[in-house]
Every structure is written in C-alpha cells, then in structure tokens.
Design a protein around this nucleic acid. Structure first.
Length: 423
DNA sequence: TCTGGGGTCCTAGGACCC
DNA sequence: TCTGGGGTCCTAGGACCC
C-alpha cells in the first residue's frame, strides 16, 4: 500500500472565533457560545478554558461566574457559523489533491506529493486561512487519519509547534504518542478509555505497544482495533470525498419549559417531522420506518419516564402529512399523562432513493399527486422563508417548546439588515 | 427557573427459515 | 422419553464523533 500524506485542519474554538470576527474587541478575551435554549457551553476560547469553563457546563450554573469574570457569552448562531465554514473550506480546497469536509470546523486534506516540506506547507495553509477568512486553525500531518488527528491535537496544545505538527517525520512519533492520553485518541471515548486504563493502558504510546490485539478487539470492537493500527501507521480509513446520502435523519429538541399536554407534544412532533421530511426530499429519499421518542428530564428528581416506539410504513414515503399521521399514532401510544416532558424527537430510518422503489399501480397514482403537493410546499418555503407554508398539525403558536436565545449575535453574513456598517 | 442536536457504526440477541 | 443447528435479517441500544 502506497503511503499517503493527510493533513487535518481544525478551526480553533470555531464558534467563538466566528463571533470574534465581527467583534475584534474580543481578541484575547474569554468567549463562550451556548447550545440551543442557551442550555450549556459548547464552544470556549482558550481564555474561557483557562478560567475553568468546561465543555457542556450548564449555563444556569455558570451565569454568575461569567458575569463576574467578564466572560462574553453568545447564543448559537448557526447561520453565521455555516457561512464562515464555507469560506474556510473553499480556501482549503486550493491546497489539496482531494478534501473531505468532516464537520463544520474541520477537514481532511490529501496532500500526498504536493511538496517536499510538509511542515512548511502546513504553515502555509494555516496562514492562508487566518489571512483570508480570519479564523485561526491547527494543522496535523500524518500518514493516517487517526495519526493526523493526534498531530492536530498536539498542534493546538504545544506553543512550540506553532500551529503545525508533522508526524511524517518518524523520529517524533513515539514522543508524540507518549504525550497524548489514550482517551484523547480519535474514536476512544470515555467508556473505552476507562476499560483500557483497567488493563494499564494510559497513553496512546501504551495503546500502540500493547501486544494482544484480540483483547483490544474484544474490548473496543473492530473500530477500536483499527484506531490502534492507524496509530502504527497502517491506513484503515480513506478520505470520503463524495457526499453520501444520509442513512438516517432525525430531529429533536429540548423544551425550554416542560411540556405536559398531549396536544402540545403532537404539535412539536409534527414540526420535527416537517423538518426531517424536508431534508429527506432534498436527498430524493423515502423512509420506511418512523420512530418517536419523548422523555422527562434526567437531571430532575421528579418521576422519570422515557419511551421510544417505531412504526413500519405500509409503503416507503417522504410525504410530510402521511408521516405526521404515523408519528401521531405513536404519540397516542407512548404519551403518558402526568409527566413533565423535557425532550422529544423523531427519527426516520430505512432510507432508500426514490428511484430504488417500485410502486404498485394504485399507490403510484397517489404518490404522484402527493409528490406534487410536497414539491409545491418545498418551493414556497424556499422562496418565502422556512416553514411559512406548513401543515396545520404544526400549530400556529410556538408552544412551550419554543427556543430560548437571549444572547444571539446578528446574522452578519446572511441577512442584509444585519450587515455591519463601516464608518 | 435553567443541562444541545444530529449523525454513524457496531454488536447482541431475537425471529425466522430450512 | 427423546425435540438441531446454522445462516440471515432485523432492530434496539451503546459508544462515539463534532
């Protein structure tokens, strides 16, 4: 197998960096970004980390501390982050043979053979993103994805690295492995790390040098063993360049205020189905199973209840109204009166492409007309704003499940009314 | 008062078939 | 009295990711 060179480019505290772009006064100041409902901290700058803010800290617990410590707080503004992300990815694409956009804030680049000095090349990438988009990034370079991820981890931690760590230079590999806790290896979560510590594996170095692969596979299953091999330089994962259709589509929300009434729950579920079926039609898919779930707050002492049920469709569909009906039938079964519900969601499974599905004649004619209706709805919504035309099942109020966003920044890049003035 | 959301992959175990 | 076993498919749930 021919050796490849992968670079993992990952934006530093991405959401916070986006907020800073439009408020330069926040440079070197602690900043955090909150999840939906202003629930918990999901992005933190180094300064905020240094002040002890942890990933996932509930905002209500740190609100006073933030005020006292002058930590700047933002609600999430995903339209802004997605837009900045596009700019980052476009710039990155110039530097790679192929690129896999892995998430909103990171991408894998295949840079095999593009230079004879990969470290310098990494530096060039980092500076281009900073100069052209204004976002700081870290770059990890290595012959496998898992190693590149580890290199990236070190690039962000080490001041000496100056943003780029290159593990193509073999003499640095064991030093690097020794400096990373096994739980920080990509794909080794807290549960797995705990099991590994029980057999005395603490660092990535211990992990790589553990001789019993059978035991590793038994504890961590197949992907776990693949991580180990990748850290030994054996490539198990390639870049995934083509955009794949989703294999499942879900939509769920936590409620800002508890929901007690069945009709409110049904309204919420209808909205989630609407959202998910829009996505489903976008990839020209049909789903064959619908799941609905709801639960009380696991953080509360009150009576707990949680249940999920799945319904198999008579024939695969992407019709919003049809799927709302099915989902509501599940609500009728699993909704129990007397609980304070804090979260609910739906999932669409068994997705197939429209063309893969052979329709019998009677359902075929139905399918055409309902397909036309959905097309009209989708078009109206694209032109006039999301959810301006929807099923009455979604309700006209926003009920108790409305979202809280007290600290949202303006939509600087996606709404003309919010474009900044330069004087 | 107040603890995110959207995915993927894997496995165990049940159902079913011959 | 004695009542197989292997293969396949499906799904719920766990673990992980960002």
């Amino acid at each position: 197998m021919k050796e490849k060179v992968f670079a993992l480019v990952d934006c530093n505290s991405f959401y916070c960096s986006c907020e800073r772009l439009f408020k330069p006064s926040l440079k070197n100041k602690p900043v955090i970004v909150l999840s939906n409902n202003d629930g918990c901290a999901i992005a933190r700058t180094q300064e905020a980390k240094d002040l002890g803010i942890k990933m996932g800290d509930p905002f209500f617990k740190i609100r006073d501390y933030c005020k006292k410590s002058d930590i700047h707080v933002f609600s999430s503004n995903f339209a802004l982050y997605t837009n900045i992300s596009d700019r980052v990815m476009k710039t990155l694409a110039r530097f790679a043979v192929t690129i896999e956009v892995y998430s909103v804030d990171e991408a894998w680049l295949d840079i095999t053979g593009v230079t004879d000095d990969y470290t310098a090349y990494g530096k060039k990438i980092e500076q281009a993103i900073l100069r052209e988009v204004g976002i700081p990034v870290g770059v990890g370079i290595a012959p496998t994805k898992t190693m590149a991820k580890l290199a990236n981890h070190l690039a962000k931690k080490s001041i000496k690295a100056n943003g780029v760590v290159n593990l193509m230079e073999k003499q640095f590999v064991s030093v690097a492995l020794k400096r990373v806790a096994v739980g920080d290896v990509w794909g080794i979560g807290s549960r797995s790390a705990e099991k590994l510590r029980a057999i005395n594996i603490r660092t990535a170095y211990d992990f790589v040098n553990f001789k019993n692969d059978k035991l590793i596979q038994k504890i961590l299953t197949k992907p776990g063993l693949q991580r180990k091999q990748e850290l030994q330089g054996i490539r198990c994962f390639e870049l995934e360049v083509d955009i794949q259709d989703k294999r499942s589509i879900g939509c769920s929300r936590s409620f800002s205020i508890g929901v007690y009434a069945k009709n409110e729950m049904k309204e919420a579920i209808a909205n989630y189905i609407t959202h998910a079926t829009q996505k489903l039609r976008k990839q020209k898919g049909l789903c064959s199973r619908v799941s609905v779930y709801m639960r009380t707050s696991p953080f509360k002492d009150t009576n707990q209840y949680s249940r999920m049920e799945t319904a198999l469709l008579a024939s695969p569909s992407s019709n919003t109204c049809e799927l709302i009906e099915v989902a509501w039938a599940i609500v009728e079964i699993i909704f129990k009166q007397g609980y304070e519900y804090k979260k609910a969601g739906i999932e669409l499974h068994g997705l197939i492409g429209t063309s893969e599905f052979q329709l019998s004649f009677p359902s075929f004619s139905n399918h055409i007309s309902s397909g036309e209706l959905m097309k009209v709805m989708d078009n109206v919504n694209v032109k006039n704003g999301d959810m301006c035309l929807k099923s009455l099942a979604c309700g006209t109020s926003m009920g108790a499940w409305k979202m809280l966003r007290e600290h949202k920044s303006p939509s600087y890049t996606t709404n003309f009314k919010h474009v900044q003035n330069v004087k």
